[in-house]
Amino acid sequence: MKIAIASGKGGTGKSTVAANLAWVLARSRDIVLVDCDVEEPNLHLYFPAEETDVPVTALVPEIDFERCNFCGECGKFCRFGALAVVKDTVLTFPYLCHSCGGCALVCPRGAIKEVPRTIGKVSCSRPLPRLVLITGVLNEGEVLAPSVIKAAKVFAEGHPLIMYDASPGIACPVIDTLEGSDYCLLVTESTPFGLHDLRLAAGVAEELGIPAGVVINRSDGKDEETVAFCREHDLPILATIPFSREIASIQNRGGLIARDLPGWEERFAALSDAILEVGP
């Protein structure tokens, strides 16, 4: 089963929920946790362990100046400005390139070769006997988050139980994370922004045909609007985590409430049971 954790709004507690769920699941079964928030991965903070790194590359154009006649077709084609033909030279801006390969296809002289360039890495570790953590890391200034996410997901492929922690938002990186998932857990918070973005994220899961459920985090006890929204959209609320200083302080030192706060192992176990029940 593949479980994706998303939220729309940033900072609602996706990683908190992912880390605690993974810890609880790893008590009784093998689980692979994939940090797909490649621009700011943070699950490794909960699970420090020795990592093995594998670079992720993307193909970028290289110009053969023996063949190029500066016709400008590549630069006109590239909508990302990764190539510019000015006067008698071709400039490449590799960090703007989306690796579509179009420049090489439109070049009438066969003067463009695609060469790999490192844009990030995938780090693998085994912080617990039954937990493997795979972290996608996009290098600063790079744009191709989806390539690193896809690579990180490939490393987990074939395992019976995989959990993907998505980035905030609902753009390409989140779509790429959710793709192929059997279930989407949406983490929201008791704020108007939390509900606004829950609406968006729930829409994405629906569009992709992925069944979803909701966790309300940092609940101030006044969740009527969120509850009403979930009822209207047939989204079960699987857990509510209160806004509490005690929880925050455990979080802040990289702790896991399921492990460090009495009563929470059981609550996360109930959450995991509810998710696993949906099955693939």
């Binding site: 400008g72 630069g75 909508r79 990302f80 400005g81 990764a82 190539l83 510019a84 000015v86 703007l96």
Partner: peptide, 14 residues
Amino acid sequence: ASGGVGPRAVQMLS
């Protein structure tokens, strides 16, 4: 356009 407009504009002027 979302990005990369600088190089594209320069090629257009060129």
